[in-house]
Design a protein around this nucleic acid. Structure first.
Lengths: 344, 344
DNA sequence: TGTTATTACTGAAACGATTCAGTAGAGAGC
DNA sequence: GCTCTCTACTGAATCGTTTCAGTAATAACA
């Protein structure tokens, strides 16, 4: 049943040339020249026999797996990779596509206790890795030592010399709050998650705070709603916001992720608070769900697909040797106005 | 900078034993016995040197890559793998997790014109593949010939002898329509996509039709709304449904995917038709978005995570040689009542 | 004491590619 | 006719494992 594997050796026999010749011709090695007839006979033989290269053998000798790893955060309660998070989904679609266009495959993996991702990466011989939003000081040395091309996405840990792709999250938070301030809002809550971690949310919060302070608008701890970046926490925090709605005087909220914003909608609605009637909402990211809720979310938009593409190109740039110096790529963001904000 | 790779040979030298011994000890080969001291010295040496196995070499000699491929449908307009589709996202999370628990990694890939997935699978030496919802008669022979462990998920093409994991989609459609009929609805539209393809949607439609016919309820072509399985098409079809709402007498709709149901909500709302006030909606799948819309969707629920887990276990069963006969696994479904249906 | 098992370990051939370091023959230049 | 350069091609080592087929030494059995 199992089709006996065709090897380069079989092609060589069929075409009456050496294994070396077949390898050179199949790989179109530019430094080697062959007569058109030889080329044709090798190609024909390969075709006729149904040759399929063996990546394991290629990888072993060339030390190139043509795979890049993608590390996606997991939380403790969530032992699975969160493909369903729209941000990760959009990002991965783009990463997979760009990699594939360049002849690479991606190996997505969460990490578990007994295996660090870098261990997997070395075992699998990954050519490079893209690490998404990891709070990774503890892994820094290990990664460094592995000497593997690495691109960090959305990483705010410093003291490393890895290449980075990100947006200006502080500026994004600032834009969001400024936008609401310009619309006449004065008490603007911020709904976010994992604020203690040195990540994008912390930056967005700083931006929000900065805008409030600059405008001389009230800023106090009670305006800050911190939880997890999830729909469920959006609901919870929305509930809290609704509860204190009357006395707090809050008229707008800046939410640091679309998925939380949807939860917030639900929490507010259940608490009898309407969007944007009672509270205007600005969200962040502009994943595909931002457009499908009601009212559609006004957001600070980042191009997640571009981010994925850029990350792949960056890691490929290191792998192929072009890029050697440390580089930080900051992608643009902008406000996209939809229906979740009204002026005050 | 780059840490010189540690090989088994280096461990052997360090521990003063042969390469063979190291290999056996590291792999805990059950047929081989060694003295405790030897075992310890090898393990210590491996640890001290920071040994990381080389999967490419392992794969080359053992013909096992410990990777399984996952094929996710792409459409023509969508050249990227649709991670963002909640169904695929939920499925992949589960597949990745289950695979990882079993020491496997998954290779997700779309296909492009010049490379069939099976070609990738053979080149990469994948140990097995999970094919999701593919209308794959044209690939049947190729896959068959590759002699690779395959599990088909949600596949309704017959004449093959591959293992299959699915639900009873016809029964699911029947349940949805029956549920609405029992609630007193008589004119029940069906909103779906890619009906011409021999896939799950066709089956669900047959089930819907069967229930209508059994109940002696009206069934005519005008009740059928066919498009693509996407949010956008949900909006379009919702718009059409809203347009003809007054004269059609439709009071309920059975939608064949959550993502379309969300679109339908939007289309109906824009057309001035309310859910469930004017039209009750039953959706299908129960992905994470089914609970977050308003009103939350009453759905025919399938356990997508279980489906992913089952698919991985099935393919692992073939790989490890346990399962050889053709098997068809049908997972259970049930109605989950939420807020999108009212009685008539 | 001689045969047979058992334990602990090893040598070397694979696996399927790549690529360095050639070689043989033809043509050019003088 | 001699060297030199090119073109077209090849032999063999190498990548890091696994695993078959041993071997030598000791223990068990008759």
């Amino acid at each position: 049943m199992r089709s006996g594997r065709v090897r380069i050796k079989d092609i060589a026999a069929e075409a009456g040339v050496s294994v070396t010749t077949v390898s050179y011709i199949l790989n179109k090695t530019p430094t080697q020249t062959f007569s058109p007839e030889t080329v044709k006979s090798v190609l024909d033989a390969a075709n006729k026999l149904g040759y399929v290269p063996n990546m394991a053998a290629k990888a072993l000798v060339s030390n190139r797996s043509h795979m890049i790893g993608v590390v996606i955060p997991q939380t403790e309660q969530h032992r699975e990779v969160m493909f369903s998070n729209p941000f990760y989904g959009d990002f991965l679609s783009s990463v997979e596509y760009t990699a594939r266009q360049n002849g690479y495959h991606i190996l997505i993996s969460g990490t578990n206790a007994d295996q660090t991702y870098i261990g997997v990466a070395r075992t699998r011989g990954l050519d490079g890795i893209i690490i998404l939003g990891m709070y990774m000081e503890q892994h820094y040395d290990e990664i460094k030592k592995a000497g593997m091309p690495v691109v960090l996405v959305d990483c705010y840990v410093d003291g490393h010399d890895f290449n980075t792709v990100k947006i200006d999250d502080l500026q994004g938070g600032y834009m969001a709050a400024k936008y609401l301030l310009d619309k006449g809002h004065r008490r603007i809550a911020h709904v976010t998650g994992r604020l203690k971690e040195r990540g994008v949310n912390q930056q967005r919060m700083y931006g929000w705070k900065k805008a409030l302070e600059e405008a001389g608008a009230a800023y106090d701890r009670s305006l800050l709603y911190d939880g997890e970046v999830s729909y469920e926490y959006g609901v919870i925090l929305g509930g809290r916001l609704a509860e204190s709605f009357r006395e707090s005087g809050v008229t707008a909220a800046f939410v640091s992720a679309d998925i939380m914003a949807l939860g917030l909608y639900k929490g507010l609605k259940d608490g009898g608070v309407s969007v944007p009637g009672d509270i205007s909402v600005v969200s962040f990211d502009d994943t595909w769900i931002a457009g499908i809720c009601d009212p559609a979310l006004t957001v600070v938009r980042q191009d997640v697909a571009l981010k994925g593409k850029t990350a792949v190109e960056a890691v490929l740039g290191i792998i192929d040797g072009g890029i050697t110096e440390k580089r930080e790529i900051i992608l643009p963001i902008r406000i996209v106005e939809r229906g979740s904000v009204i002026g005050k």
